Simulated scan of single mutants.
Amino acid sequence: MWRSLFMALGIMAIIIGVETLLIDSASMYAAAESTAADFIDPGATPALRTEVWEPGEKFPWAMLAIGTVIVLYAITLPKRWHSHGAG
């Protein structure tokens, strides 16, 4: 169970790192103020409040490094963890 949890977290961090390498900025819309019909018109802003997030230059590389270390840790975990010992 622990192995799969750490593997999932590491792969997710790697995916976020690759995605942020490919984008310059991301626009986030307030979900409470928008409806599905607002997203149909490509020229309109789906919400009144938008927040633009620009990842720093080191962020993608940090996420890739952290994700890689977590995946390598998950691979090297023993298959069975005995937390209470045999007895």
Rank of each mutant, 00 (worst) to 15 (best):
Pro46Ile: 06
Glu57Gln: 05
Glu51Ala: 13
Val69Gln: 03
Leu22Lys: 09
Ala86Asn: 13
Ile15Glu: 00
Gly17Lys: 01
Pro60Phe: 11
Leu21Gln: 08
Met28Lys: 11
Tyr29Arg: 11
Phe59Ile: 09
Glu33Ile: 06
Ala26Ser: 07
Met28Gly: 12
Ala86Ser: 15
Thr20Ile: 04
Ser27Glu: 15
Arg80Tyr: 04
Gly87Lys: 14
Ile66Ala: 06
Thr45Asp: 15
Lys58Arg: 09
Thr45Cys: 11
Pro42Gln: 02
Glu57Ile: 08
Tyr29His: 09
Val18Cys: 05
Ala74Val: 12
Ala65Lys: 01
Ala44Gly: 07
Ser83Gly: 08
Leu21Tyr: 02
Ser4Tyr: 12
Glu57Lys: 01
Gly17Tyr: 00
Glu33Cys: 06
Ala36Phe: 07
Val71Cys: 13
Ser25Trp: 03
Trp61Glu: 03
His84Thr: 13
Gly67Glu: 00
Arg49Met: 15
Thr35Trp: 09
Asp38Ala: 15
Trp61Cys: 07
Glu54Gln: 14
Glu51Asp: 04
Glu33Gln: 07
Asp41Trp: 02
Leu5Thr: 02
Met7Ser: 06
Asp24Lys: 11
Val52Leu: 11
Ile23Asn: 01
Met7Thr: 01
Met7Ala: 03
Glu33Asn: 09
Pro78Lys: 06
Ala47Val: 13
Pro78Gly: 05
Met63Glu: 02
Trp61Gly: 05
Met12Ala: 11
Thr68Ala: 05
Pro78Glu: 03
Ala30Cys: 08
Thr35Asp: 14
Met63Lys: 01
Ala36Arg: 11
Trp81Arg: 13
Ala86Glu: 13
Lys58Trp: 14
Ala65Met: 11
Ala26Gly: 02
Ala30Lys: 03
Ser27Ile: 15
Met1Ser: 02
Lys58Ile: 12
Glu54Lys: 14
Ala36Gln: 10
Tyr73Lys: 03
Met7Gln: 04
Ala47Pro: 09
Ile66Trp: 00
Leu48His: 02
Trp2Ser: 11
Ser27Val: 14
Arg3Gln: 06
Ser27Met: 13
Trp2Glu: 11
Met28Ala: 14
Ser4Ala: 14
Leu48Trp: 04
Gly67Ala: 05
Leu77Ser: 05
Arg80Gln: 07
Ile70Trp: 02
Ile40Thr: 12
Val18His: 00
Gly43Thr: 02
Arg3Asn: 00
Gly43Cys: 04
Pro46Gly: 08
Ala44Ser: 12
Phe39Met: 14
Phe39His: 15
Ile40Phe: 07
Pro42Ser: 01
Ala62Val: 12
Leu22Gln: 11
Asp41Leu: 08
Gly56Trp: 06
Thr50Ala: 07
Phe39Lys: 15
Ala36Met: 08
Glu54Arg: 14
Leu21Thr: 02
Leu9Cys: 10
Val69Met: 04
Gly85Asn: 09
Ala26Trp: 03
Val69Asn: 03
Asp41Tyr: 01
Ala31Asp: 13
His82Ile: 11
Leu21Asn: 01
Ala30Pro: 00
